[in-house]
Amino acid sequence: MNWDWQFTFEVVVPRLLAVVPVTIQATVLSFLLALVLGLALMLLRISPLRVISIPAGEIIEFIRGTPLLVQLFFLFFLLPEIGIVLPPLTTGIVGLGIYNAALCAEVYRAGILNVPAGQWEAAKALNLSACRTYRDIIIPQSLPPIVPALGNYFIGIFKETPLLSFLAVAELMHASKLIGSEYYRFTEAVTVAGVFFLVMSLAAAALVRFAEGRIRGRILH
């Protein structure tokens, strides 16, 4: 094996560093989209109307039961056909967001089901409105299991961003592939990309733990 340090530091590292912001952007925006969309899906899922809750449940199951990459390709080819032309990065963020929204919806739901039935009954006995019941009673109590799970999905989304390279989004994996085929030197390009992912996922995990600690201190007791 011949590892070329000069090539590593003059070509690979700068070019990979240049696209790190794209990966971060994709991660953060998809996560925010997933949080909001997941909430909407969850509300449909727990609707008392079965014509709404059952299809919503099936859609969530379907999204969870099929590969993200196929969904990304589907969106990537479908959107232009129905007249929506988006940059690949945006398509990718939408795809990541929808996929993870299905996961988040289940997390939210599990959190809410986790609240003991007695709490609902107590709220009813105190004659609280549905809105106040959710805001003051149910949501604060459902957060403990939700927050760490969402943190894991944040890291999960980060690890899924390399899939965007299939849509030719210029993120880390794509840049590494390009370097590899341009210079025909995959060793440095792929290994450095791996190190980037390792470092960034450790950093993301630390960030999530920190945020969890803050949120725990703020909302949970």
């Binding site: 094996m1 690890k159 995959f186 060793t187």
Partner: peptide, 22 residues
């Protein structure tokens, strides 16, 4: 830690494109 921390795609590339180097 190594296989969970680096991405699956990186590992696939590594096995296919980098292993020949060894």
């Amino acid at each position: 830690e190594i296989f969970r921390g680096t991405s699956l795609l990186v590992q696939l590339f590594w096995f296919y494109f980098v292993m020949p180097e060894f």
